[in-house]
């Protein structure tokens, strides 16, 4: 699919950057005619993916997070969140609702939320090398001009 626009950010895995990532995606998505609900959905999905990098990919250190946003032909937003951290041993199992290695502080709902708030979610991971989550959100065509 043809790319119409794209931006990239790189930032360290500090929790203060979770809010930055949500703000960045909201700003970029303003080029698409998203509803408030759709905008809330993509902010939530980004928040989940970035938090996973901070909590799971780099549990005892600070490492780089790469956020790439693309607008694709036909009005689709692609969100890619990439880390060079610990990686996931069994991606199928990690995607299951309630699965967590995070103990009492986490609920194991992040991937479930990302999946239900976007149209597609791909997870590629290699232990010791890192994880890439790629999500796409289609903007529903409004029938009538508002």
């Amino acid at each position: 699919m043809k790319e119409l626009n794209s931006v990239r950010f790189e930032f360290p895995s500090l929790s203060a950057n979770e809010g930055f990532a949500r703000g960045a995606v909201a700003c970029f998505a303003a080029q698409l005619d998203m509803t408030l609900t759709e905008l809330g959905d993509v902010k939530t999905a980004v928040s989940e993916a970035v938090t996973n990098c901070i909590v799971h990919a780099y549990p005892d250190s600070v490492g780089p997070i790469l956020l790439r946003l693309r607008i694709l032909e036909g009005g689709e937003l692609e969100i890619q969140v990439k880390d060079k951290g610990r990686g996931i041993e069994d991606v199928e199992r990690a995607r299951q609702p309630l699965f967590t290695t995070g103990g009492d502080d986490r609920g194991g709902m992040g991937f479930t939320i990302m999946e239900s708030f976007t149209d597609s979610m791909k997870v590629r991971s290699r232990v010791g090398a890192g994880t890439t989550v790629t999500m796409r959100k289609r903007v529903e065509k409004r029938r009538k001009a508002r």
């Binding site: 939530t44 989940e48 502080d105 709902m109």
Partner: peptide, 11 residues
């Protein structure tokens, strides 16, 4: 705004 971190707090 709230994400899964909020869900864990509620639980």
């Amino acid at each position: 705004f709230m994400d899964s971190s909020g869900v864990a707090i509620l639980l």
